[in-house]
Design a binder for these strands. Structure first.
Lengths: 231, 231, 231, 231
DNA sequence: GATGAATGAGGGTTCATTCAT
DNA sequence: TATGAATGAACCCTCATTCAT
């Protein structure tokens, strides 16, 4: 075989996996201007990548465009990310990380179920739907099948936790008699299903028939919490 | 915007759009063996395309693989479809058409709401979830953003009709007092949200945590129809 | 990792190894014009590759130039060879194979040692030095270190055989008293050393001081066979 | 023609040729610590370059690796050498210079031919074969065709001299009757051919069949000096 | 019609070289 | 002087599309 010239990558490039991001070592002195510029570029690349990947999908997105949009040269991308795939994965990771922490607590306050549910929905809307994280979730949905590691990461770090927390909340609600139905305890996914649908609808069909997410989620709340306004 | 391949000559080519498929003219005599062979090949190509597009996504799928899987030469694809994009669009169209008709009636029978809902859900599971149509819906979700025409087609031919029908059913249900809540009338999407979620979950997270669609949909039914088993 | 779009090579490309060359299947009918054209192109590519690799070295040679020189499109190269490296390896193989057979016999005739030696040297000059095989041997010398497989192939198929045959010839010569020295039997390499040197000299220093290979080899013969013209 | 990298701006840059090396001006005061550090770095770079060029060849070697191995920054290389090519050429020059001087005398002592030959061979083994100069000679062999200037330098400074000296020694030997054959006088290359072969063999085939250079050279000596142990 | 060899534009990746710090 | 982040030209390889057979 003898791969004489090319490749020999793996030992020299920033990690392509899903471990801790590289964050090119801050050269010297605390917060050197150099390191700051570098971090800014990295962020610019990530932001540009999100836009391009969202607009074209992973396979069709061109790193050339990412670079142009980020205002850097194509080669610069490779100073921060091992390859296109690593850029994609770290992008998702980067955007999702903040969420993970927040999720943990959200459910652990000892307040009535309906309050928690409302709070969660509000959080989804303000922290995801109204931000570019919406695009991140969309990317997981559209590209996840081709990136099992990402799907797993998302499941482990987000879904599993949300699901678990929800299940407990619902169980508590059932025990307290706050909700009359154990469906949500058995399938916490039912709680978020409309949120996912909204995400998709928004991306594909909003121009034909706009969907008011807040209203949708409120209606969903009413429905499952059985506070429906009697017809 | 569909930046899938190179040329983007789609407008110069025959039936790249969503008009009626070409159905290569039956050579001579009605139902000639020639025409039959041709139709078979076309179907084989469509079937192969569905598999490949589902597995790799539109951009990353290779027509070479489609051809091999269909058992035809690469060039043959171009005898039936103008280009990769047309193949994709006609594929979706081809798979969706049968559904459209069915949908119309489904709602128009004058039976209690809960019966209709159960029937719909059963239809979704048996006609979509348990068939390769599941993949078609997934493709619309994952590629729709890049194929506005497809998204529109799907909205117009499927979503809009389903939505409209559902809305009427729900309204009737509310009027008759069969359901106490108008949420579903205002947002028929709430009815199908779990189905969509199941589709996505199944593709991405089933290996981490399997989701029993039937049970999920039944729980969903119970929940929104308020027949929940009291805790 | 998820290598979604790219690569997926190994199962679709012609063998990159050193096994039997692919020789794209002759389509149909004996010696179809199609297959012939294909074989011609393959040969043209190999010839062009030899020139380019010889002129620039493996790493610096550009497949673009190979294609242009061969009168084919860049992509055509990949119809015949898995990648640049496979092209290189098959090139060496292709050029060397004919030699291998010839070598076997050369030594096995039962004639006096000096006849065999002269014959061998003549063969080297006419079959290697005066042909483009000279470039092949040079490539092995210059690139062999980066292509262990090639070096091994050359050693196994050519060197080991030549060495073995020479050793026997020399041993026989010593036994018969045709040569008075066992140096050549112990180090058959001494026999070919000047040939190698000539190859190198010819490539690097001929313009400063031309070297008459035939004369050199003749002198070498005289020297080691001790037929030196007394001073 | 050296088509190694991109720009090929070699003519616009300082000392890309084979003239005297730059030896970055000793900043101030004779033998300042500054100058010493600089010279050390230069040497480290040269040493690293030899390793990298030997391992990968000129075209495939990466200055990045040279820098890392030398323990300096990539930019530092350019403080000492105009470009990659200049580094390569000066490297060869640097390593070869010491030899040149030695060679001159070696032959000029008035001792019997066989003594001189043995001495030369010993010198080759100890001064070249057992040192990293072996790699330098190998580089000339493998890259010389792409660096005519280097080949010329090597020819002029080393080969031509050795050849000339050898020729005289041999002529003398013939006159004195110390050797019975004028082959070596006409083709001094015959003397060194096995040394060259050993160099190449060692790099490519030693792992398949080790070659004992000393024994080889001794046998060679015996053979051409006709002191062969009678079989 | 059917084939699949051939094409060549395009994009990911590398790396010599530059230059602000 | 030394650094190493940044640049961008170049090159390998892919694959949608064409077309002679």
């Amino acid at each position: 075989m003898a791969k004489p010239a090319t490749k020999r990558i793996s030992d020299r490039r920033p990690n392509a996996g899903l471990g801790n991001a590289p964050q090119p070592a801050a050269a010297s002195g605390r917060g050197g201007a150099r390191a700051k510029r570098s971090a800014e570029r990295r962020d610019a690349i990530l932001a540009a990548a999100l836009e391009e990947f969202s607009a074209s999908g992973f396979a069709a997105a061109r790193l050339d465009d990412v670079a142009r949009r980020a205002g850097v040269a194509k080669g610069t991308i490779y100073l921060h990310f091992a390859d296109k795939e690593a850029l994609f994965q770290e992008l998702i990771r980067h955007e999702l990380s903040p969420i993970v922490g927040i999720l943990e607590q959200a459910a652990h306050t000892d307040v009535p179920v309906d309050v928690i549910v409302h709070r969660l929905i509000e959080m989804f809307v303000s922290q995801v739907y109204d931000t570019h994280r919406k695009d991140v979730i969309r990317l997981i949905i559209t590209e996840g099948a081709r990136f099992p590691k990402l799907a797993e990461f998302y499941y482990r770090e987000v879904l599993a936790r949300v699901t678990k927390a929800m299940r407990e909340v619902m169980r508590r609600g059932v025990e307290r008699g706050e909700i009359k139905h154990d469906a949500l305890a058995r399938f916490p996914q039912l709680l978020v299903a409309p949120a996912i649908l909204a995400l998709i609808w928004n991306g594909l069909f909003d121009k034909f028939e706009p969907l008011d997410v807040r209203a949708l989620m409120r209606a969903h709340c009413d429905l499952i919490l059985q506070n429906g306004r009697a017809a």
